[in-house]
Deep mutational scan, measured.
Amino acid sequence: DWEDIVRFLRKLFELGEEVVIGDWHNHHREEIKRLIEWLEKHF
């Protein structure tokens, strides 16, 4: 279910905002944000 995936990604992203998950999070933050925005537009 796409909504569950979007919710999971958003939760992960919000957690990442508070607890910076090292370089991985910083590197992928923009991609995650773009992916969430893309999914919201399409689903």
Rank of each mutant, 00 (worst) to 15 (best):
residue 21 I to C: 14
residue 32 I to V: 05
residue 34 R to F: 07
residue 10 R to V: 04
residue 25 H to G: 13
residue 43 F to I: 08
residue 16 G to L: 15
residue 20 V to E: 05
residue 7 R to V: 02
residue 22 G to Q: 06
residue 29 R to W: 15
residue 24 W to N: 08
residue 43 F to R: 03
residue 30 E to K: 10
residue 14 E to F: 07
residue 27 H to F: 14
residue 16 G to C: 14
residue 32 I to E: 00
residue 35 L to C: 11
residue 28 H to Y: 14
residue 4 D to R: 12
residue 1 D to R: 12
residue 32 I to D: 00
residue 19 V to T: 08
residue 25 H to E: 08
residue 27 H to T: 08
residue 40 E to Q: 14
residue 41 K to V: 09
residue 23 D to R: 03
residue 14 E to M: 13
residue 3 E to A: 08
residue 28 H to M: 14
residue 25 H to D: 11
residue 13 F to L: 08
residue 3 E to H: 07
residue 13 F to Y: 09
residue 3 E to T: 11
residue 14 E to Y: 06
residue 27 H to N: 10
residue 20 V to T: 09
residue 12 L to G: 00
residue 26 N to G: 08
residue 18 E to K: 13
residue 27 H to L: 11
residue 23 D to P: 04
residue 8 F to N: 02
residue 24 W to D: 07
residue 16 G to P: 04
residue 23 D to W: 13
residue 11 K to M: 13
residue 24 W to I: 09
residue 35 L to M: 06
residue 14 E to H: 07
residue 39 L to W: 07
residue 31 E to P: 03
residue 15 L to H: 03
residue 37 E to V: 10
residue 26 N to I: 09
residue 31 E to F: 15
residue 42 H to I: 13
residue 13 F to P: 00
residue 28 H to R: 09
residue 29 R to V: 10
residue 18 E to W: 14
residue 2 W to I: 05
residue 9 L to Y: 02
residue 38 W to Q: 04
residue 40 E to H: 14
residue 36 I to L: 05
residue 12 L to H: 01
residue 7 R to D: 03
residue 15 L to D: 02
residue 43 F to E: 02
residue 11 K to H: 05
residue 15 L to A: 04
residue 21 I to A: 11
residue 42 H to S: 09
residue 13 F to N: 00
residue 34 R to E: 05
residue 39 L to V: 07
residue 22 G to N: 07
residue 24 W to E: 06
residue 40 E to G: 08
residue 26 N to H: 13
residue 20 V to N: 06
residue 16 G to H: 12
residue 7 R to W: 04
residue 43 F to V: 06
residue 14 E to V: 05
residue 10 R to L: 13
residue 30 E to W: 10
residue 33 K to M: 12
residue 14 E to A: 12
residue 6 V to P: 01
residue 15 L to F: 12
residue 36 I to H: 02
residue 34 R to Y: 10
residue 37 E to F: 07
residue 3 E to V: 10
residue 17 E to P: 13
residue 19 V to L: 13
residue 3 E to C: 13
residue 43 F to M: 04
residue 40 E to I: 15
residue 3 E to N: 06
residue 2 W to V: 02
residue 36 I to E: 01
residue 22 G to D: 07
residue 14 E to S: 07
residue 11 K to F: 15
residue 20 V to I: 12
residue 5 I to F: 14
residue 6 V to S: 02
residue 24 W to Q: 09
residue 2 W to N: 01
residue 9 L to V: 02
residue 1 D to N: 09
residue 27 H to C: 12
residue 21 I to Y: 02
residue 4 D to T: 10
residue 29 R to Q: 09
residue 1 D to M: 12
residue 13 F to K: 02
residue 25 H to V: 11
residue 20 V to M: 10
residue 6 V to W: 15
residue 25 H to W: 15
residue 33 K to P: 01
residue 38 W to S: 04
residue 15 L to Q: 02
residue 19 V to M: 10
residue 40 E to M: 14
residue 31 E to H: 11
residue 23 D to A: 07
residue 1 D to Y: 14
residue 11 K to I: 11
residue 35 L to S: 02
residue 18 E to P: 07
residue 28 H to W: 15
residue 18 E to I: 11
residue 10 R to K: 08
residue 21 I to K: 14
residue 42 H to N: 06
residue 6 V to E: 03
residue 32 I to M: 04
residue 21 I to P: 10
residue 34 R to T: 04
residue 33 K to R: 13
residue 12 L to V: 04
residue 28 H to L: 15
residue 23 D to M: 07
residue 15 L to N: 02
residue 31 E to A: 12
residue 22 G to I: 09
residue 15 L to M: 06
residue 16 G to A: 15
residue 32 I to Y: 09
residue 1 D to G: 11
residue 7 R to A: 06
residue 25 H to K: 05
residue 12 L to T: 00
residue 16 G to T: 11
residue 37 E to H: 07
residue 27 H to G: 06
residue 22 G to P: 13
residue 17 E to W: 15
residue 26 N to R: 08
residue 29 R to T: 08
residue 7 R to L: 03
residue 19 V to A: 07
residue 9 L to Q: 00
residue 24 W to Y: 07
residue 4 D to K: 14
residue 13 F to S: 01
residue 9 L to H: 00
residue 38 W to G: 02
residue 15 L to S: 03
residue 41 K to F: 10
residue 5 I to Y: 04
residue 42 H to W: 15
residue 43 F to D: 03
residue 24 W to G: 05
residue 35 L to W: 05
residue 39 L to S: 00
residue 23 D to E: 05
residue 6 V to T: 03
residue 37 E to G: 11
residue 19 V to I: 13
residue 35 L to T: 02
residue 28 H to T: 08
residue 33 K to L: 10
residue 32 I to T: 02
residue 40 E to L: 15
residue 25 H to N: 12
residue 34 R to L: 13
residue 40 E to A: 14
residue 39 L to N: 00
residue 17 E to Y: 15
residue 2 W to H: 01
residue 10 R to N: 03
residue 2 W to L: 03
residue 11 K to S: 05
residue 19 V to Q: 07
residue 11 K to T: 07
residue 34 R to M: 11
residue 9 L to W: 04
residue 17 E to S: 11
residue 41 K to I: 07
residue 23 D to H: 05
residue 26 N to S: 10
residue 23 D to I: 11
residue 29 R to A: 12
residue 21 I to W: 11
residue 10 R to H: 04
residue 40 E to S: 13
residue 24 W to H: 06
residue 20 V to F: 13
residue 10 R to F: 08
residue 3 E to S: 11
residue 39 L to P: 00
residue 32 I to F: 12
residue 26 N to A: 12
residue 33 K to F: 12
residue 28 H to K: 05
residue 19 V to W: 08
residue 13 F to W: 12
residue 28 H to G: 10
residue 23 D to Q: 06
residue 8 F to Q: 02
residue 39 L to M: 03
residue 18 E to H: 14
residue 29 R to G: 08
residue 16 G to K: 07
residue 22 G to V: 05
residue 2 W to R: 01
residue 35 L to D: 00
residue 12 L to D: 00
residue 5 I to S: 00
residue 18 E to F: 12
residue 43 F to H: 03
residue 9 L to T: 00
residue 42 H to G: 04
residue 22 G to H: 10
residue 7 R to H: 04
residue 16 G to N: 05
residue 25 H to Y: 15
residue 4 D to I: 14
residue 3 E to K: 08
residue 11 K to V: 07
residue 17 E to L: 15
residue 41 K to L: 06
residue 21 I to L: 10
residue 11 K to N: 04
residue 32 I to K: 01
residue 38 W to L: 06
residue 10 R to P: 00
residue 1 D to P: 14
residue 27 H to M: 11
residue 16 G to S: 11
residue 17 E to V: 15
residue 36 I to W: 10
residue 12 L to K: 00
residue 36 I to Q: 02
residue 30 E to I: 09
residue 16 G to Y: 15
residue 37 E to T: 09
residue 36 I to P: 00
residue 43 F to Y: 05
residue 8 F to S: 02
residue 35 L to G: 01
residue 39 L to D: 00
residue 19 V to Y: 03
residue 38 W to N: 02
residue 22 G to W: 07
residue 30 E to V: 06
residue 15 L to V: 04
residue 5 I to V: 06
residue 23 D to N: 10
residue 39 L to I: 08
residue 36 I to T: 04
residue 4 D to L: 14
residue 24 W to V: 06
residue 14 E to P: 03
residue 3 E to L: 11
residue 29 R to F: 12
residue 1 D to Q: 08
residue 10 R to Y: 14
residue 26 N to P: 12
residue 11 K to P: 00
residue 43 F to C: 15
residue 9 L to S: 00
residue 4 D to G: 07
residue 3 E to W: 14
residue 14 E to G: 12
residue 21 I to S: 12
residue 5 I to M: 05
residue 31 E to I: 15
residue 34 R to K: 11
residue 6 V to G: 02
residue 40 E to F: 15
residue 21 I to V: 10
residue 6 V to K: 08
residue 8 F to I: 08
residue 21 I to E: 09
residue 29 R to E: 06
residue 5 I to K: 02
residue 5 I to G: 01
residue 32 I to G: 01
residue 42 H to V: 12
residue 23 D to F: 13
residue 30 E to M: 12
residue 6 V to C: 13
residue 26 N to V: 05
residue 41 K to P: 02
residue 19 V to S: 09
residue 17 E to C: 06
residue 41 K to Y: 06
residue 43 F to L: 10
residue 42 H to M: 13
residue 11 K to Y: 14
residue 17 E to I: 15
residue 27 H to K: 10
residue 12 L to M: 03
residue 12 L to N: 00
residue 38 W to A: 05
residue 24 W to M: 09
residue 39 L to C: 08
residue 22 G to R: 04
residue 30 E to Q: 10
residue 32 I to Q: 01
residue 26 N to E: 10
residue 5 I to T: 01
residue 31 E to T: 13
residue 26 N to T: 11
residue 30 E to S: 05
residue 18 E to N: 14
residue 33 K to Y: 10
residue 7 R to K: 11
residue 5 I to W: 14
residue 10 R to W: 15
residue 18 E to G: 09
residue 14 E to R: 10
residue 12 L to R: 00
residue 14 E to K: 08
residue 8 F to G: 01
residue 9 L to N: 00
residue 27 H to D: 09
residue 10 R to T: 07
residue 38 W to H: 03
residue 4 D to N: 10
residue 29 R to M: 08
residue 2 W to F: 07
residue 11 K to E: 03
residue 24 W to S: 06
residue 22 G to Y: 02
residue 2 W to M: 02
residue 23 D to T: 03
residue 18 E to Q: 14
residue 20 V to K: 10
residue 6 V to A: 06
residue 39 L to A: 04
residue 40 E to Y: 15
residue 22 G to S: 04
residue 18 E to D: 09
residue 36 I to D: 01
residue 3 E to M: 12
residue 40 E to R: 13
residue 27 H to E: 06
residue 33 K to G: 05
residue 13 F to A: 03
residue 18 E to C: 09
residue 22 G to K: 07
residue 21 I to Q: 07
residue 5 I to R: 01
residue 12 L to W: 05
residue 30 E to R: 10
residue 13 F to Q: 02
residue 1 D to L: 15
residue 21 I to N: 10
residue 10 R to M: 11
residue 7 R to M: 04
residue 18 E to M: 14
residue 26 N to Q: 09
residue 31 E to Y: 14
residue 25 H to L: 15
residue 6 V to Y: 13
residue 29 R to L: 14
residue 31 E to N: 09
residue 40 E to N: 13
residue 29 R to S: 12
residue 38 W to D: 02
residue 36 I to R: 02
residue 33 K to W: 13
residue 28 H to S: 04
residue 37 E to S: 11
residue 37 E to Q: 10
residue 35 L to F: 14
residue 28 H to F: 15
residue 37 E to P: 01
residue 9 L to D: 00
residue 32 I to L: 11
residue 1 D to W: 15
